[in-house]
Design a protein around this nucleic acid. Structure first.
Lengths: 215, 215
DNA sequence: AATTAAGTTATTGTATACAAGATTATTGAC
DNA sequence: GTCAATAATCTTGTATACAATAACTTAATT
């Protein structure tokens, strides 16, 4: 790794933390990171600040910054928040989505269906993200869309794990179909409820999430 | 202003931007700020990064950071998002709030009532914040609570303006009473709907918000 | 006179040097 | 041998120096 720009370093660090390269509570040593990336401490410190801001690390003054891997409780909280954000997006999307938007959504979902038929978990993971992003976009509220994208990105590594479990992909796809219908018919409350349920982690999904944590 | 620590400088800068000290699109000059705060560019740059992260400024590489005052559209979007976040908090709070929490909420609201009777807009502004924060807390979801607090803080200067208008305080208080009842009875959907309406900006409130923008 | 190109200045981004506080190690006392 | 105190070392935070790029100015040409 020999990147040079501070924001690229921030992205790389984010990836490293996402990939579980660092354990929870581990200190991110400025000097070691500077050597690792072949830069001075200055851009490293900027990157660390970004990590802290995004909630992936904690800064203790005069002590350093420490990675903060979310525990089960915090993860559930984040998924719960995500469910509410998606429900809100669905509520607005039901009233505001254009025909073009609905078309893009249907397209994204047929790519999901293709992935399921190919039993391509990695592919489904990607197309599923697009599907949800089309709904955020359909909300026609840039700020809400931005917040949804932010949290979606933060939860990325944990959603990945869940898809490995049998039947999860097919069920997810079936729920997508219902959601599309509700959005097409403009049924805001139904769309919100379906999306909330689609994202909420409980029952079987909860077990899978916890199991995935011990990677 | 002669503070020294970087995070204090960030807070001060945030206040300055909030108070409309800087016009939209204005460049935040690192050197001038450094002189103003009697520090070097290093802590200034850290503070500026924080501003960018919180969305109050925009960074263009090799060009500088520029303040980004939200226009009417973005403001409405943020209030719409806030309404959904508060609705989500209310939904959870209706099911999860403890008796102690409900008591704190009632206390906060009676302080609101006192402020209305004193016709104390500044006081109402403060106590109203506490009222809403008790609901965020009542959601029993630290992450959601954090997001709600973040956006509440970002919208602070714009809510302030609205309260100047006649009758707004009394109406707000009346809505509080309904919300408390819904939460006490555990009516999640009702609480969510009431909070959404309480925060949503439309009709008369919209005119007031736009009027306040031209400070 | 207008436009373009080159040179100059100014500003951001990075590296290094220094200061202040925290951690660790060593030494001394009980 | 253990605990405490002090000194040495390490790490963060800030200041300054340098490099790279963008903005501006000036001059020359059409």
């Amino acid at each position: 790794m020999e990147l040079k720009r501070a924001d690229q370093i921030a992205d790389s660090l984010e990836q490293l933390v996402f990939q579980g390269e660092y354990a929870d509570g581990e200190r991110l040593d400025e000097i070691k990171l500077a050597e690792h990336f072949s830069v001075s401490r200055t851009p490293i410190r900027e990157a660390l600040q970004r990590l802290v801001m995004s909630g992936m690390a904690e800064q203790i003054p005069r002590r350093g910054v420490f990675v903060r891997q979310p525990g089960p409780v915090e993860l559930l909280e984040m998924f719960e928040t995500m469910a509410e954000l998606e429900a809100a997006c669905g509520r607005f999307a039901a009233a505001r989505m254009t025909d073009e938007g609905l078309e893009r959504l249907a397209d994204a979902n047929s790519r999901c269906r293709d992935a399921v038929e190919r039993e391509d978990a990695a592919g489904y993971y990607l197309e599923n993200e697009s599907f949800h992003q089309e709904i955020y976009r359909g909300a026609t509220n840039s700020h809400l869309q931005g917040e949804a994208l932010r949290l979606q990105n933060r939860l990325k590594p944990f959603r990945r794990v869940q898809l490995r479990f049998r039947g999860r992909m097919a069920q997810s796809l079936a729920e997508h179909e219902e959601i599309i219908q509700a959005l097409e018919y403009g049924e805001a409350e139904l769309a919100a409820r379906l999306l909330r349920g689609h994202v909420t982690v409980q029952g079987e999904k909860f077990q899978q999430l916890i199991a995935g944590l011990k990677h």
